[in-house]
């Protein structure tokens, strides 16, 4: 009975994992199967013909996979760096400084959280087109530079930073920027890790916006690259397609595993889901 009580939650959670992991399992399975087995519904992990080498070889050779990955890295890191650079001081000011209209600003930030990207796509596209910036890295990154979600997340976590430590720092001669970056952000590393995971995953996997502003294969981030790839292959070679998908998923999984501890601390601490 005691054993049951101990393991029951694990059992329930394990069952919950199945629908979450099934698509990934299917992706991996398909990526090592031969074309003849693709539509086989069996979940048996060992295929009759082990075609992993062919599939992965084709995915790596037929399309500039390295190029897509590099594009993804440039876009994601670029977005993340600017987001952090802008959101951290803003969140610090909102959380710890007293100034007029602070509450109004906070309200506007919450309001901005409710605006979906799609609503802004057209004006942003027209703007970028007029500025002759389509088909650039900048066009893929610019709309995401200012993240209200980041401001909100950091604000929640900065708020709990002890006021007296900030005051001690002021008396010791820290400037406000030094307090913000060297003390307050330092105390919120889990939130930074959580936000980094959110941001990297979202933009690594983003297909919508790159598809709108980029037509040049050389600039395509991984998902858009995959789309070009499936066009080239006229959608027939699912094995290779899934091999490509597995390749582009891997960095995100690794990234999450590294930041896992901080990520969970970050979201439980700030009460953001």
């Amino acid at each position: 009975m005691a054993a049951l009580r101990k393991y029951l939650p694990h059992l329930v959670l394990a069952l919950g994992c199945v629908p979450m992991l099934l698509p990934f399992y299917w992706m991996l399975l398909t990526s090592i199967r031969s074309p003849s087995e693709i539509f086989n519904v069996s979940l048996w992990p060992i295929p009759e013909h082990f075609d992993a080498v062919t599939n992965y070889g084709r995915a790596a050779a037929q399309v500039p996979m390295a190029r897509f990955m590099l594009n993804g890295v440039i876009v994601c890191v670029g977005i993340l760096v600017v987001q952090v650079l802008t959101a951290v001081p803003a969140a610090y000011a909102l959380a710890k400084l007293r100034f007029p209209a602070r509450r109004l600003m906070m309200t506007l930030i919450i309001a901005a959280l409710c605006v979906p990207m799609q609503a802004l796509a057209l004006p942003l596209f027209v703007g970028l087109a007029k500025a002759n910036l389509l088909n650039t890295y900048f066009a893929m990154m610019a709309p995401f530079f200012l993240s209200v979600f980041a401001i909100f997340l950091f604000h929640q976590s900065f708020r709990s930073y002890p006021e007296e430590v900030i005051e001690a720092a002021r008396m010791d001669g820290f400037s406000e920027m030094e307090i913000c970056w060297r003390l307050v952000l330092r105390g919120s590393l889990p939130s930074l890790a959580a936000f980094a995971v959110f941001s990297l995953v979202a933009h690594w996997n983003d297909l919508y916006w790159p598809m709108i502003v980029v037509t040049d294969t050389n600039l395509a981030p991984p998902p858009l690259g995959m789309l070009f790839f499936s066009d080239v292959e006229s959608g027939a070679n699912y094995g290779a397609l899934m091999a490509g998908a597995a390749i582009i998923t891997t960095p995100m999984v690794i990234c999450f595993l590294f930041a896992r501890k901080h990520f969970i601390a970050g979201i439980t601490m700030t009460g953001v889901k």
Partner: peptide
Amino acid sequence: VDPSERNLAMVFQSYALYPH
């Protein structure tokens, strides 16, 4: 004058040590 220019030292109730 800014707090840091007054050359005063303060000991806080919570001690306010830099945690990291």
